[in-house]
Computed example of a mutant assay.
Amino acid sequence: MARRLRPVELGFLLSAPQRMVFTAGMSAAPKTVYRALAEDVSDWPRWFSAISAATPTRGGAGRDIQLRVGIRFEETILAADPDERYAYRVDTVNAPGLRALAEEWWIAPAPGGSRVRWTFAADCATSLRMTLPLIRPGLTVSFRGAVRTLDRRLARAR
Rank of each mutant, 00 (worst) to 15 (best):
M1D: 11
M1S: 10
R4I: 03
R4A: 14
R6W: 01
V8P: 01
E9C: 06
L10C: 06
L14M: 10
A16L: 04
P17R: 08
R19Y: 11
M20V: 13
M20W: 04
T23R: 08
S27V: 03
A28M: 04
A28E: 02
A29G: 12
A29Y: 07
K31Y: 10
T32M: 07
R35A: 10
A38R: 02
A38V: 04
V41C: 06
W44T: 10
R46N: 08
R46D: 09
S49R: 13
I51F: 02
I51W: 01
I51N: 00
A54Q: 04
T57R: 05
R58S: 06
G60Y: 05
G62F: 04
R63K: 13
I65H: 00
I65C: 01
L67G: 12
G70A: 05
G70P: 10
F73H: 09
E74R: 15
A80C: 14
D81M: 07
P82N: 06
P82W: 02
D83L: 04
E84W: 04
Y86P: 11
A87Y: 00
V90T: 07
T92M: 03
N94D: 09
N94V: 10
A95F: 11
A100W: 00
E104N: 13
W105N: 05
W106E: 15
A110E: 03
A110C: 00
S114H: 05
R115T: 08
R115A: 15
W118N: 07
D123P: 06
D123M: 10
C124F: 04
S127D: 11
R129G: 14
M130W: 12
L132R: 06
R136C: 07
P137Y: 02
L139W: 06
L139Y: 11
F143Y: 10
G145H: 03
R148S: 08
R148K: 08
L150Q: 03
R153M: 13
R153L: 09
